[in-house]
Design a protein around this nucleic acid. Sequence first.
DNA 1: GATGAATGTAAGCGCATACTAACACCAGTA
DNA 2: TACTGGTGTTAGTATGCGCTTACATTCATC
Lengths: 188, 188
Amino acid sequence: MRLHSSRSTDDRLLEAALELLGERGYEGATTRRIAERAGVAEVTLFRRFGSKARLLAEAVRRAGADFEEAAARPSGDLKADLHALAGRYLRQWRRAGTFPFVVAGAAAREPELRRALEEALAGRLATVRAFFEHYQRQGELRPAPAGSLIHAFFGPLVSAALFGAALEGAPALDVEAHVEGFLGGWAA
Amino acid sequence: MRLHSSRSTDDRLLEAALELLGERGYEGATTRRIAERAGVAEVTLFRRFGSKARLLAEAVRRAGADFEEAAARPSGDLKADLHALAGRYLRQWRRAGTFPFVVAGAAAREPELRRALEEALAGRLATVRAFFEHYQRQGELRPAPAGSLIHAFFGPLVSAALFGAALEGAPALDVEAHVEGFLGGWAA
DNA sequence: GATGAATGTAAGCGCATACTAACACCAGTA
DNA sequence: TACTGGTGTTAGTATGCGCTTACATTCATC
């Protein structure tokens, strides 16, 4: 399969797979529905990706790469960077809906998915870690372990997105206040 | 169904459902497997709960109640309370594995599950909110919106648990440092 | 010892799933 | 013209799903 990559067919399948993963979960993203949404015959899906598992793993890898593009590159102005980061991050989670939870849940029992997820997360993590370490070297952040900074800054964004997606009256996160609180706790 | 509640049968079904939800996801938690693990005939499951959806919703409600028991009751010593809270919370998430993500993902397409999840979360949320508001009244925490405090404190715990469950080399969370950072940002 | 509630056993229904086989079409290239 | 690679169409397969029906068994209470 995937002899000469006919890009647009693969693209449409991957995109449809991504959408349906978020909307319907792993088992709900059936090969029929994916093919239908992509405007392609079901058999084409199998011809090009071999199996549902490989298609979905590939789709997750691609979603990870998209996420990566918006990653953290220090500009020199820590506070401005944090604001921009938080905004972009929240927007991505909001657009993703339940997708990350579906994938995290399914990854436990789908080895191909798990590998794709680990790759995607590891890439993101390295970028973010480098971001914080940069500002530690500049002396603007305390020399705490990068893990602490990462969780202190991204954790509240994650929980706001998670509870926002799952619960109607979830408590809101004020980005302004969050950045202030983070700097209060971790600025040098 | 559920005429005279024969507790142990229901209990075993609910427990098995909870385990399988975490291990196999919503669709992977089949009625046959749940019944087998509970040591009960499949038909008994339907006689007592009527449908798979109702059984799983009930199981989620129960998991929420268990979580609730360990909830926050202010002792007067803020720092000690935060430590205890963080420890208990992390332990619960760790034991839960991917269960919360499975539920969050499935809730989007299973209305009964969604209602159960919303109930469980709303209960938890109220307790936690009361905890922070107590210490605000004592003048030990800044008078920020409760949502900001909740996300600032629990967010890092959630992200640590999430990435810990999904990724081998996830960055660790130092609870000690986390509480320090939180107080640095939000203590009055 | 009869009653009735809770459970078990066995068989199966209708349906959707992931995936395959066989064959037809069509565009671009040699 | 002939070939070839990508796709579509149609019709499957085997499997597992949620759920039901009919009948048998256990066991405490009256």
